[in-house]
Design a protein around this nucleic acid. Structure first.
Lengths: 233, 233
DNA sequence: AATGTATTTATGTGCAGACATAATAACCTG
DNA sequence: CAGGTTATTATGTCTGCACATAAATACATT
C-alpha cells in the first residue's frame, strides 16, 4: 500500500475531517505538522496550509505558531447566518413581497436610542416605521432610527415605496455593526400591526451599524410568530 | 505621487474596503482584475487573490470566473454565531455554572421526533431533560433526544453531573447539522422550571445533528427571558 | 435566426522556495 | 533557583510561475 495522493486542498480537508471524525486524531490531540502532512499527502505545504486554515476558521482545529495544530477539544460550532434584505428573504421563500410605510418623522429620540447610537441628546434623528408583507400577510415590523447627521440624503427620501432596510444598504455604507437576536412579547401597537394576539412571542432582531465612530442606523425587526432563522452547521 | 505598495493581503483588503466604502468602486460595479490590481498594488497576484477571496467570503464581493469581480449590489451580511457549550457560555459571562438533570428515560418518541430524526417509528431513543444555571438562577432548559442506535455509549452515561450538551460534543461526532432560532411561548411545565411567568416569550434554539445519514441528536434549548444571542457584523 | 464550436479571459488552484513571526524550549548567568 | 537571553520550530505569508476551469464572446455552420 502506497500513500494515496491528495492533490487539492479540498481532498486534503476531507481526509483531515475523516481522521478527526474517525477519532484517528482525537479531540485535543496534536496533529502532524504541515510539512510532514504535505509529504504524506504528496502535495505542497501550501496546499495543506490552505486546508488546515479553512478547518481552523470553521472552529475544528486550533492552530498556534510553534505550538502546532490540534483538534479542537470542544469545537465551537460556527453558524453563519445570512442576513439579507427582507425583500429578498421573502422572495427567496417564493412569496410575493409587499411593503407599507407606517410612520416617518424627524424627532429627538428617547434617551435609550441616543444613548445606544451615541448621538447628542438634543440631536434629531429620522424615525421610520414600516411593515413588510409576504403574500399580503404581515411578515415583520421594522422600527428604525437613522442618524441624519451621517446620512443626510435620507431626509429627502420618503421611503414610501422602497424600504429603509433596502435603501440604506445601497446608500449608507457601514464599517461594522452589532446584531442581536432575542425573543420578545409584542406591544399592543405591534400586535395590532402584525395582526397577532396581544402578548404573542415574537422573534426580534436588533441591529446597530456604524460608519467608523459614528452610528448610522439602529433598527429593530419583529417577525410574526412562527418565524425561524435557520442555517446549516 | 507614486503608487504606495500594499505588500500583504490584509493591507490589500483594507485598501479594497476603503475604495468600496468611499464609493470609488460602486455597488454592482466591476472592479479591475487581479492581475491589474497586483501591478497597481505592487504585489503578487496571489496576494490580491487572497484578499479578494476573503472579501467574497464575507459577502462584499461577487466573483465569477471570466466575468470578473464586482462589488456586491446588496451585500448579504454574514453574521457568524459561535455556538459554544452552555457551560462555557455561562462562564464566559463571568457567572458560576450550575447543572441539574431533570429527567432521563429511554422511550419510543412521539411521531414528531422520529419523523425529524428519521428513526424507525418503533425505535426507542434516549430522552434527557436538564436545567442549566448561571449563578444559581435558571439559564436554559435543554430537552434532548439521543439516537442510541448511533451513540450506544450514551446509555451507560447517567448525565447526572455532566450535561448531555457537553458529553455529546466530545463523544459523538457529527458530520453536519441544522440549527434554527425562534421565539416561543413557554409551556406551563417549562415556565415552572425556568421560574418565569406562564406564557413568557423565550428564545429557542433547535438543533439537529447528523452523522452522515443517521441523526445523532435533536435538542431544543429554551432560554430565560432577556437572553440575547449577539455578534458583530 | 438558431445552433453548435472554438477562442478568450478572469478567476481558481497548485507548486517550490523564501522569509516573517510567534511562541516554546534550551541555555546561560547572577 | 530565578531571571533573562538565545536558539529552535511550526505556522503565516509572499512570490513567480504554471496550469485548470468556468463562462462570456466570437465565429462558423446549418
Amino acid at each position: 500500500m502506497n500513500a494515496p495522493s491528495f492533490r487539492n486542498w479540498q481532498s486534503v480537508q476531507d481526509e483531515v475531517l475523516r481522521r478527526i471524525h474517525a477519532r484517528e486524531w482525537k479531540p485535543g490531540e496534536l496533529i502532524p505538522n504541515e510539512a510532514d502532512l504535505a509529504v504524506e499527502f504528496g502535495c505542497a505545504r501550501s496546499t495543506v496550509n490552505r486546508a488546515l486554515r479553512a478547518l481552523a476558521e470553521s472552529g475544528l482545529l486550533d492552530r498556534r505558531r510553534k505550538a502546532g495544530t490540534r483538534v479542537a477539544a470542544q469545537p465551537v460550532a460556527k453558524a453563519t447566518l445570512d442576513i439579507a434584505v427582507i425583500r429578498h428573504e421573502v422572495e427567496a421563500r417564493g412569496n410575493k413581497y409587499g411593503y407599507q410605510l407606517l410612520m416617518r418623522e424627524t424627532v429627538v429620540p428617547p434617551a435609550r436610542i441616543c444613548g445606544a447610537m451615541q448621538t447628542p441628546a438634543d440631536a434629531a434623528l429620522l424615525h421610520v416605521r414600516a411593515l413588510h408583507l409576504a403574500d399580503d400577510a404581515p411578515y415583520a415590523v421594522e422600527d428604525r432610527w437613522i442618524n441624519i447627521g451621517i446620512v443626510p440624503q435620507a431626509q429627502s427620501e420618503d421611503f414610501a415605496t422602497i424600504s429603509a432596510n433596502e435603501w440604506l444598504l445601497t446608500h449608507a455604507p457601514y464599517t461594522h455593526g452589532e446584531i442581536a437576536f432575542s425573543a420578545a412579547q409584542v406591544s399592543a401597537d405591534d400586535a395590532d400591526i402584525l395582526g397577532v394576539a396581544a402578548q404573542s412571542a415574537v422573534f426580534a432582531i436588533d441591529r446597530l451599524t456604524w460608519d467608523n465612530d459614528a452610528s448610522v442606523t439602529k433598527v429593530r425587526l419583529l417577525f410574526t410568530p412562527g418565524y425561524q432563522l435557520r442555517t446549516q452547521l
